[in-house]
Design a protein around this nucleic acid. Sequence first.
DNA 1: GTCTATACTACGATAGAC
DNA 2: GTCTATCGTAGTATAGAC
Lengths: 207, 207
Amino acid sequence: MTSQTLIDTAIEQFGRHGFEGASTREIARASGTAMSSITYHFGGKQGLYLAAADHIAASVKTIQGPALEAARRVAENGTRDQAIEALLAVLDGFALMMISPQTEAWALFITREQQNPTEAFDRLYTGVMQGVVEVFVAALARIRTDLPGDEVRAMGILLFGQCLVLRVCRAAVTRILSVETIDAPTATLLRARLRANALCILSENPA
Amino acid sequence: MTSQTLIDTAIEQFGRHGFEGASTREIARASGTAMSSITYHFGGKQGLYLAAADHIAASVKTIQGPALEAARRVAENGTRDQAIEALLAVLDGFALMMISPQTEAWALFITREQQNPTEAFDRLYTGVMQGVVEVFVAALARIRTDLPGDEVRAMGILLFGQCLVLRVCRAAVTRILSVETIDAPTATLLRARLRANALCILSENPA
DNA sequence: GTCTATACTACGATAGAC
DNA sequence: GTCTATCGTAGTATAGAC
């Protein structure tokens, strides 16, 4: 499918060079088609960009969906320990995603959108993030019954930040750990430390 | 000073639109000068970009310098509790920086560089980040004597992630907390939660 | 649906006046 | 040191053949 190939290429190019930096000529060339195919399928550069955002949202939803659904169920009727385990699993899922080279382009795309949001951010937020936030808040509220709603949201944001840094500061992370890329042992180290940190934060005794 | 104005404008424009997305014409216009001034002062677009990176590194160093120096001293000869307080202060300083609108352009610039590093990243890393990492590692090693070096580095990275998310996921953070911008009460909430999280992680008893 | 050809705009770099 | 003028290149969009 030409349009799917264009979207895949677009995510990579837009992520790498930003909206203005990426060129439709180059995206078309790398997709093995003519530039005017973009006009035909998506109406123009902007349309392709939005289609790329939608595709990312759907893909992330597919990958993280099961873990999120499990966490949602446990948050509703499960023990506190079960909720902790489920939330740790969700965090680990995001950490894996942030580490994976396969999803690098997605993360690049999303973090760029965060920096100056366009309509594409709306689609990403309502497409995936909103659901993720709901699960985080529900699970955290179950775990830390002592905290009010806004504290719970703040905690969720900060917990997520520990996953995020693995992607957004990748260049610094590899330098600090003296590795070329985040290989298997490095990933294990980071995930274990993330789990330990999160467990420590989550299991603090409610007052 | 024309060259200083150009650098300030460049940081904002490069941060907002990326290297390719920003245009020298627009930077010159916003700086109230002609485009050829960029050629004269910096040799070209690339030279201006590197000058912007150097300026950011120097500015961050100036702002965070005192807190970092204090933490360095305490890490060398201070009590464990003093080291914890000093590290919390450094983290809070970074959180404040990530929240401040004044430094938004810097953060935009740096996170863009992380996503695909150029020579500018080298300058940023050796200019500021390296020093920050050293202090983090030294203080953490003093606090968590039970952990080996790589675990300490991983912990430092993850702790920093909690500050980072406040800037990099700003669009999501404001939506989650239902605020337009991170105002004073919101900032207080986030910083308090960050401190609580960090304190919890840091003060875990060394085995 | 996909291609080629082309129109139009904006970019960075540079030369030369002041 | 700062300006205007200009060159060559690369961008998006569009028209029209197949």
